[in-house]
Write a protein that binds this DNA or RNA. Structure first.
Lengths: 156, 156
DNA sequence: CTTGGATCGATGACATGTCAACGACACGGC
DNA sequence: GCCGTGTCGTTGACATGTCATCGATCCAAG
């Protein structure tokens, strides 16, 4: 048995980046969620569901695929859809091809709500993040984030 | 009354960065939390509380100040401390100076748990984020994150 | 001293997420 | 056809966070 490797602590620069990142990760979602709720009455997850659904030309998606696309568990999506359904944003339909599946459909009201919410939300993302970054920083963020996501890989 | 400003959509580069950031923000905490729970049985918030407490030389902190430092609500911290207290990680003591206050104290067991958890946690942060970034990217991330936090300001 | 307002931490109701089951259904090998 | 196995979405129990409210305590004005 060899000794365990000695811990490699973070350098001051690394520590600074890590702390700043964590603080941003705490604060930014709160600010965005607050704007979104004020402007359109939607929560962040609500907006995610609606906008992902609208990516499909016919505004329908099989639950399992929608969950996979959003990196959500099927359970979480099912719970959340139940809440959105009572608000008339989405509906569920049976799949004629496979009796196990549920097809999630964006209602007209849901689509209209999304369209009404989108401009202010984009503006909010700009104000709190995108417009604060230089082009270089934005490119660095994109490259790093993509690398991180790839490294983590499948969380199954 | 002037017309509302037309929405400024995100450019392709901005859209790419925004999407990548969101995906990282979904995936990275899950990966870190999984490592931490496996290695030490602590959750992410557990670790935050313990490590912030340990910053103080005497390992004690007034609840209100601890909450402010962590950007948590007092309610959240109170709830979480109640759970950590049953596990023997922290205790609460009255403040002799001011009867309203509660002083949170790190127990020996809590400190030992933190010390045992730290090396693996740092290693996990390195593997999933820090070691994946070039020095330039890390500097850009730190600068951007600090700007974002400053812009959002106080969430009171 | 007393009193009115402010602050502190605790608490209960509620919203939202996770996890482990479960029933319904699909499908390949027999 | 029938059964064993796997997948799908749902559900209930539970964990964790938010929000409104509360009693206890402090403090300053009168």
């Amino acid at each position: 048995m060899t000794d365990a490797a000695p811990p490699r602590w973070l350098t001051p620069d690394e520590e600074r980046a890590w702390r700043a990142y964590r603080r941003m990760q705490t604060v930014l979602p709160v600010a965005l969620a607050r704007d979104l709720a004020r402007d359109s009455g939607l929560s962040d997850p609500d907006y995610d569901v609606l906008s992902t659904l609208s990516e499909q030309p016919d505004h329908r998606w099989q639950l399992r695929e929608l969950a996979a696309r959003m990196l959500w568990s099927r359970s979480r999506l099912s719970h959340h859809l139940a809440r959105m359904e009572t608000r008339g944003l989405v509906t569920r339909e049976p799949d004629p091809g496979d009796g196990r599946n549920a097809v999630v459909v964006l209602t007209d009201h849901g689509f209209a709500t999304l369209e009404a919410a989108a401009p202010a939300h984009v503006e909010s993302v700009r104000r709190h993040l995108v417009d604060l970054a230089t082009p270089d920083e934005l490119a660095a963020l994109a490259a790093l984030a993509e690398r991180v996501v790839a490294e983590v890989g499948d969380l199954t």
